[in-house]
Amino acid sequence: MELGLGFYLGIITILTITIVGALAPIIAPYRPEDLFTPLSPPSPSHLLGTDDVGHDVLTHLIYGARTSVIVGGLTATFSTLIGMIAALISGYYPKWDPLISRALDFFLSIPRLPLIVILAAFLRPDIWLVISVLSFFGWAITARVIRPFIMQERSKSYIERLKCIGARDSYIMIRHLLPATFPLAAAQFILEAGHAVLAEASIGFFGLEDPTTLSWGMEIQHSLQRSIIFLTNKWTWTIGPPSVALIIFLLGMTLMAMDLEKNLNPRLRVRLW
């Protein structure tokens, strides 16, 4: 297995952001609700300055990472798990395939972000709602990617040979088919996490999220609402940091997913003869 630079850059980025998010109360210089002089430029006491209300930008950035990691991680975990199980059943038991395929079509046809926007009219969407909606409708993407792979793998004669020597279906699925999907599932996990992070940021950005949530999307939205700051150059330290953080996080995940798909998937591996 030859993993490229992209994978390592990606994993370093993701790990750094995850650790920063997890240790937020310890490494953040202040508490998120602490107030200081509004719109002060970066200085030794406020490394990234303060926003229009007087919050420390760095502190909010660090707590925002926490939200992004939770939303991305949990959504990806749920949708990958459900997706893998659905793909296994549908790919392994032809009997169930028509039913699951139709379900996939249904879930895939529903745009998730607009759905959250609509739900926001009735509920105040906190991150848990975002996670539930994204996972509830997101597993179908994973399942759709993995299902044909399971079908292809199932048609190979080693599966038949295993049945002949008396292996149970559960054994074949857990010991052979499931591990076979790991490369694809890993890539899918990261893509789904990226998707969720972006969706969460968008909801924050639209101002639909619970205002007490600290997230990068909300930060950008806050700053944009005070359009007065665009008359000065102060926007650079209120919008800049969360935007850059978001881009780096997404870029890291994309790089990693691309590299994984290229290197772990045996079908894309070049053979000599």
């Binding site: 190979k156 080693y158 040979r161 295993l162 054994y171 052979h176 076979a180 045996p266």
Partner: peptide, 26 residues
């Protein structure tokens, strides 16, 4: 059972040793 295509008769991710002892394990 000995199938036609040897190249797909064993799990491509498993070492031959593990595939050979698999029926004992089962």
């Amino acid at each position: 059972y000995i199938p036609q295509h040897p190249e797909s008769a064993l799990d491509p991710r498993w070492k031959l040793y593990d595939s050979i002892i698999e029926s004992l394990r089962i």
